[in-house]
């Protein structure tokens, strides 16, 4: 860990699917991190993770908490929503005005970050899972395609098979009937990604002509989704480093 500074803060992002924690230095470099599936007993889980991290760095640090379980993080010194934290985390990496698309398990967020790192505007999907990672997860599960193979499948598609339903339940049955009709799996997967990307683009609304798009969240690890989103938004989309940790990073920076 040469070049890294002293640890200054811990950030915890308790999401609906995974719980993320980071230790950062003054410059915002991530010194240590943890990613685990979220446990129903959030207090116990976060207490344990925090204890481990404190032990590892050997000192007490201010703690920033975010994510849907943010109010159940014992000892948190700063509690902020994931919108604000994702914006801080993303801005510390790009240091310019961008539009952040964060696709997590249950939520998809679009955050317009101003030139000073402020949140200029944001949008989130409604209660329905239609535009979220959950949508993909359900259908990939049904098709028995592992998450880490999906990009390769989509890349092999000779054409896209349109999937019109965006409701998770409808799309599932539509996909099954497409398979039954003998459509190739790769094409269906591509169609599915395009359909989801369109839904996210609708959420984003009308973007300024010069807007730069960056992506975070677990879904950003799926290259096919990044491509589909770029096509739907008609812009290049770049993925932030450690896309899953951006929220926790922002929480840590807010606490420091």
């Amino acid at each position: 860990m040469t070049g890294a500074g002293a640890p200054v803060a811990i950030g915890v992002d308790v999401g609906s699917t995974t719980c993320k924690a980071v230790v950062v230095d003054r410059a915002g470099a991530i010194l240590r991190h943890r990613v685990e599936p979220t446990h129903p007993r959030t207090e116990q889980q976060t207490t344990r993770i925090l204890d481990e991290l404190r032990l590892a760095v050997g000192c007490e640090l201010p703690i920033g908490a975010t994510g849907y379980g943010r109010k159940r993080v014992p000892g948190a010194t700063k509690v902020l929503t994931e919108i604000t934290c994702h914006a801080r985390g993303a801005f510390s990496r790009v240091k310019r005005a961008v539009v952040l698309v964060d696709m997590g398990g249950q939520d998809t967020k679009i955050v317009r970050i101003g030139p000073g790192g402020d949140v200029a505007d944001f949008a989130m999907n409604d209660k329905c899972a239609a535009g979220t990672g959950r949508f993909l997860e359900v259908i990939l599960g049904r098709l028995q395609v592992p998450f880490d193979e999906v990009s390769a499948h989509v890349a092999r598609a000779r054409r896209s098979v349109p999937v019109s339903s965006t409701c998770t339940v409808f799309a599932e049955s539509e996909v099954i009937s497409l398979v039954a009709q003998g459509e190739e799996l790769e094409g269906i997967l591509r169609g599915l990604h395009e359909s989801l990307a369109k839904r996210v683009a609708a959420l984003a609304g009308v973007l300024p002509a010069d807007a730069r798009i960056v992506m975070s969240g677990g879904v950003a690890l799926n290259a096919a989704m990044v491509d589909a989103l770029g096509a739907a938004l008609r812009r290049e989309v770049s993925v932030l480093p450690d896309p899953q940790l951006v929220g926790a990073l922002g929480a840590a920076l807010s606490a420091s």
Binding site: C167, F170, S173, E174, S177
Partner: peptide, 9 residues
């Protein structure tokens, strides 16, 4: 709107 209707179902 075909997005609100599952033809198969």
């Amino acid at each position: 709107d075909p997005r609100a209707y599952a033809v198969e179902q």
